[in-house]
Simulated assay, not measured.
Amino acid sequence: MKYEGNLLLFINTHSDTKTGDLVVSSDLKHSGSVWICELIENYIGDHHLAAAAQAIASINSKPGVGSCTHGLIVCTCGATGRVPKSAELLKSLIKNDIFDFVLTFAGIYIMDTIIAPALTWFIENVYIYDMKIWDALEQSFSEDLHALKQAPVMLAFANIYVDLNNTHECVVDSQVLMYSNLLDGGPWGLDIFCCLNAKCGSPSYNIIFRHCSKQYYGRYWLKTNIRYTCLQCHITNKAITTPKWIFLAWSQNFGCIWYQ
């Protein structure tokens, strides 16, 4: 079995809402789910998976080797990309040299027909135009707000750095690309935002968000503070600043952000 050229593995299924595990069987009353690594091992086989990991590690460590990208796309509802343990498992697939990137979604649900154009654009950017993986994501989903509004994208990927001694170093990053939408209860793209009143804690769908004081535009729009009114406890909080871990994404569209 040779491991030359590119590889893209695509998984389209449901996920367990509590664990993020992928559903492999179901009936009217019960569903069976397994964690992502077990599913891949059963699909590819333990021996092939180990051999592939060794081959990728060898390729990534050699200077002057052409691009050889192995990717995994998990098209499922958001638990796989939202549950911390599940996200760490996806990231471990990169650390163990099984894949160069893993893409999944971190929304409540996804609709295949909505994300398909942006996803196709991302794959084209990576495998045809040989773009950096994160740049390929920004220049696909950031330009398709219809898709990004529907489902934030979680991407774990490997960056290969070469120092002055021609030594390769692999750094694994995981980042989430989102769209900030106050009208739909997603300040800075965070639909997990809750009322800051300790006695309330109402979720974002029960809160009205608005801009507060001066509104900034262009590349400075993250400086805009927000205020909200909770429909449950009727408390209004003002001058809420953007969290330090939220960053502006490269995009021609207003409102695209990312965080690690």
Rank of each mutant, 00 (worst) to 15 (best):
Q252P: 00
Y228T: 09
A249S: 15
K223R: 12
G71N: 04
T17Q: 04
A198E: 14
K85C: 01
M154N: 07
A87Q: 09
C170E: 14
I208K: 14
D16A: 01
G185K: 07
D27A: 02
P203M: 04
E169I: 12
V74C: 12
L93P: 00
L39P: 09
S25Y: 03
N237S: 14
H146F: 04
C37I: 13
N225L: 06
Y129S: 12
L93K: 04
N6P: 03
R227I: 06
W245S: 10
D144G: 01
N181T: 04
L49T: 10
Y127H: 15
T80C: 08
N159Q: 09
S61K: 08
A52R: 12
S25W: 10
S92N: 05
H211T: 14
W245K: 09
Y217E: 09
T17S: 11
L103C: 03
S202N: 07
F193Y: 12
I36V: 15
T224Q: 01
L7T: 06
L190A: 13
I94L: 11
N165A: 12
E169K: 12
D191A: 11
K223Q: 10
H70L: 09
L9W: 04
F247Y: 13
V102S: 06
N181A: 05
V153T: 01
H70P: 00
S26D: 08
A118M: 10
L137P: 04
F247G: 00
S33L: 05
E88L: 09
Q150R: 01
V34P: 02
Q175L: 11
I40T: 09
R210D: 10
C230K: 03
A158E: 05
D144K: 02
W188S: 03
T76C: 13
N225W: 00
L7V: 02
E88K: 10
K149I: 04
C75K: 05
T19Q: 01
A158K: 13
I207E: 10
T229N: 12
N197F: 08
I110F: 05
W245G: 04
